[in-house]
């Protein structure tokens, strides 16, 4: 697509582009290039020079049990966050869609947690489940359940999943509700006249017609869980206990800044880069083919 009518000159457009080009070059292309470059080197023991190791860092990562474990952790974590936040959102959206009046009010009440930062959400949930002062952990204790996410890996994972899903429900709810409201009423009423009950209508008509929204949200939520939940993990568990909640992005941070293992951290960045690329490609390739419009 091109404009037919344009202005003359080349100096002005160059000047207009300059700020963006400068910022993109200095803070995007150069660092991204550096990440790729550094992933091929390891620093010598004294940190004085870099030694070229080819794909050595990647081979090392592939064999590293901690890195593999982190991959599994990330997969479990993103899968759970996606399912929990989308499930809750779909449940609320289906209910709100049944209302003739008032769905707008519920929308207002439900969308604003989107504005709460993941790190703040982390602190809120940490407070409720804190082993010493937490309200929910205290009531669980009354019921005879000894909650301790500081020591128990499953509980730690559960807590970061819930805290990460909480604010995300708003986002998913918004898109699900819009998707539901876009389904023609006549189709659903026709099915109802044919005697299809709510659950049958949902399974055979509503859910298939909703699949473009569902697929879109699926990818977006996986990307969210991969990259934007750092704040939740850092505030609640710091990746622990042991490595139980160390997702890939957290490991890049930990190895790069805490462990100062630059080669490995850079190689991990490159792996993440490939993951983002892959998710984007999947989204573009399959969105039209797999889903029902």
């Amino acid at each position: 697509m091109e404009k037919r009518v344009t202005f003359k000159g080349w100096l002005l457009p160059m000047l207009l582009l300059l700020p963006q080009v400068f910022i993109t070059a200095a803070f995007f292309f150069y660092p991204a290039g550096q990440a790729i470059y550094q992933s091929l080197f390891i620093p010598d023991p004294f940190g004085l020079s870099m030694q070229y190791v080819g794909l050595g860092n990647f081979e090392y990562l592939a064999k590293d049990p901690y890195y593999r474990a982190s991959f599994v952790t990330t997969a479990v974590f993103s899968g759970l966050v996606t399912v929990v936040s989308m499930g809750m959102a779909l449940y609320l959206a289906v209910l709100a869609d049944r209302l003739i009046k008032g769905s707008g009010t519920y929308r207002t009440l439900l969308i604003w947690p989107y504005a709460v930062a993941p790190a703040v959400a982390g602190v809120l949930w940490l407070f409720m489940f804190n082993t010493r002062v937490g309200v929910i952990s205290w009531y669980l204790g009354l019921l005879g359940y000894d909650w301790n996410h500081v020591l128990n890996e499953t509980e730690a994972m559960g807590l970061v999943v819930v805290a990460s899903s909480w604010g995300r429900v708003s986002y998913n709810f918004l898109f699900f509700l819009a998707g539901l409201q876009a389904i023609p009423r006549s189709v659903i009423e026709a099915a109802a006249i044919d005697g299809a009950r709510f659950w049958t209508r949902f399974r055979t008509i509503v859910f298939p017609l909703l699949s473009p929204t569902t697929f879109f949200l699926l990818v977006v939520n996986i990307v969210y869980a991969f990259f934007e939940t750092f704040g939740v993990i850092h505030t609640i568990t710091s990746g622990g206990p042991q490595q139980a909640t160390t997702i890939l992005v957290y490991k890049v941070y930990k190895d790069g800044f805490v462990g100062q293992d630059l080669g490995s951290s850079a190689a991990q960045s490159v792996v993440l880069l490939l993951v983002v690329g892959l998710l984007t490609v999947i989204q573009f390739k399959y969105i039209e083919r797999r889903v029902h419009y």
């Binding site: 963006q20 080009v21 993109t24 200095a26 803070f27 995007f28 292309f29 150069y30 660092p31 991204a32 550096q34 990440a35 550094q38 990259f227 934007e228 750092f230 992005v249 890049v252 941070y253 790069g256 800044f257 630059l262 951290s265 850079a266 960045s269 993440l272 880069l273 983002v276 690329g277 984007t280």
Partner: peptide, 20 residues
């Protein structure tokens, strides 16, 4: 060049960006 930057979240390039 600009379009390419759509792809990469800052989380992925933290160490070199920090150095810059």
């Amino acid at each position: 060049l600009i379009f390419l930057t759509l792809m990469l979240p800052v989380e992925v390039r933290i160490v070199p960006t920090y150095e810059v």
